[in-house]
C-alpha cells in the first residue's frame, strides 16, 4: 500500500472531486497578499500551488509562502519547483528545506526560458529537467538519498506531480512524455488550462491507462486581451473553441469588460461540471492569478462543493 503524506493525495485517491488553485509569490517583500488569497480560498480548495518565478520573472522564493499558508492559514501547499534557476545542488537543498518545513506536495516543472522573463539577460541553468527532477524526488523519497546517492538524514515525504498540456499537438508526443514520467513514478498531474472539451476528453482517455489522478486546468478569462494572449502567445499553446470566443466577445459588446469576466465565470463552471460528469478527471486546478476572488464564485456555481 502506497504511503500517503498529504491531504491532497488522500483526497485524490478517495474518488472525491478535488479543487486546487494557484497563487504567485510576487515581486514583493510582503506575504500579505498571499495570505489574504489563501484565506479566501481555504474553504474551497484542497491545496494551493505556489509558483516558482513564473514566466521566468524573479519573485519571492515560493517555499516561504508555501510554508506560511500551511502554518498560518491551514491550507496545504503544492510547492512548484522549476529547473531554470538552480542546479541540482540548489534544488536538493531547497527540497530538504521544504521537507523540513512540512511541505508534502511538489510539482516538478522545467520552467519557462529566461528569455521570456523580466531578467532576460540571465544565465539559464537547466542542469535538470522536469523528468530528472521527478527522478531526483523519487530517489529522495523512496531511497533516502540524493541524486548522487548520498544518504539523507531523516525521512523525505513528498508527493510529486507534473504538468501536462491537453492542448499540445501532436497529442501522441505529449502522452509519450507523460509515460516517461509515469515510469519514473509520479503521484498526480495538473494540466495547462483547457477550454476545448473535445481535446480534454481525448487527453483524459489517453492518460487513463496510467492510473494517475489528473487535475484539469481551468483559467477564467478577465479580458479579451487575455483571451487573445492565450490563443496567440501563451507558451505551449491553448485552444479556445470559437463558441467560447464568441460568447466572450458578445459579453463584452453587451455588458463591457465586467461582462467578459461574468461570462467567463459561467463558462468555467460549465467546463468543470462537464469534466465532472463526463470524464475520469480527479478534479480541477483553477488558475486566476491576481483575481483569485473569482475562484469561490466559480466553485459555488458548479454546485460540486458541499
Amino acid at each position: 500500500m502506497k504511503r500517503i503524506y498529504s491531504r491532497l493525495m488522500e483526497e485524490l485517491l478517495s474518488g472525491k472531486f478535488v479543487f486546487t488553485a494557484e497563487i504567485e509569490a510576487g515581486k514583493t517583500t510582503s506575504l500579505d497578499k498571499v495570505i489574504e488569497a489563501a484565506k479566501m480560498l481555504k474553504n474551497y480548495v484542497t491545496a494551493i500551488n505556489i509558483t516558482d518565478n513564473p514566466g521566468a520573472c524573479a519573485h519571492m522564493n515560493p517555499l516561504v509562502p508555501a510554508y506560511v499558508i500551511q502554518r498560518d492559514v491551514g491550507v496545504e501547499a503544492v510547492y512548484q519547483i522549476t529547473c531554470r534557476d538552480r542546479n541540482r545542488i540548489a534544488i536538493i537543498s531547497d527540497l530538504l528545506a521544504a521537507a523540513a518545513l512540512g511541505i508534502r506536495n511538489v510539482l516538478a516543472l522545467t520552467g519557462d526560458h529566461v528569455t521570456m522573463g523580466d531578467n532576460p539577460e540571465a544565465k539559464p541553468v537547466f542542469d535538470l529537467d522536469s523528468a530528472s527532477l521527478v527522478y531526483l524526488i523519487r530517489r529522495m523519497v523512496d531511497e533516502g538519498v540524493d541524486l548522487a546517492g548520498n544518504k539523507i538524514e531523516g525521512e523525505v515525504k513528498f508527493h510529486v506531480g507534473i504538468a501536462a498540456n491537453p492542448n499540445a499537438m501532436p497529442l501522441e508526443l505529449e502522452i509519450l512524455k507523460i509515460e516517461r514520467k509515469v515510469r519514473l513514478g509520479i503521484d498526480f498531474i495538473q494540466t495547462q488550462c483547457v477550454f476545448d472539451m473535445e481535446l480534454t476528453k481525448e487527453f483524459l482517455r489517453e492518460v487513463k491507462k496510467f492510473n494517475v489522478p489528473v487535475l484539469v486546468g481551468i483559467c477564467p478569462i478577465r479580458s479579451i486581451g487575455m483571451m487573445k494572449w492565450y490563443i496567440k502567445e501563451c507558451p505551449g499553446g491553448i485552444k479556445i473553441p470559437m463558441e467560447i470566443q464568441e460568447r466572450l466577445l458578445t459579453a463584452r459588446e453587451r455588458r463591457g469588460k465586467k461582462g467578459v469576466l461574468e461570462e467567463s465565470i459561467e463558462i468555467s463552471a460549465e467546463l468543470i461540471k462537464e469534466i465532472r460528469k463526463t470524464t475520469s478527471a480527479a478534479g480541477v486546478h483553477i488558475m486566476a492569478i491576481g483575481f483569485e476572488w473569482v475562484i469561490p464564485q466559480i466553485i459555488e456555481r458548479t454546485g460540486l462543493k458541499c
Binding site: R84, M116, D129
Partner: peptide
Amino acid sequence: CAKGLLNGPCGGMREGKCEV
C-alpha cells in the same frame, strides 16, 4: 533545444515550434 533538455520537449513547445 534552447534548454538543452535530455527529456524534452518542455511545456513551452507550441505547434512544433520553440517558446524562445
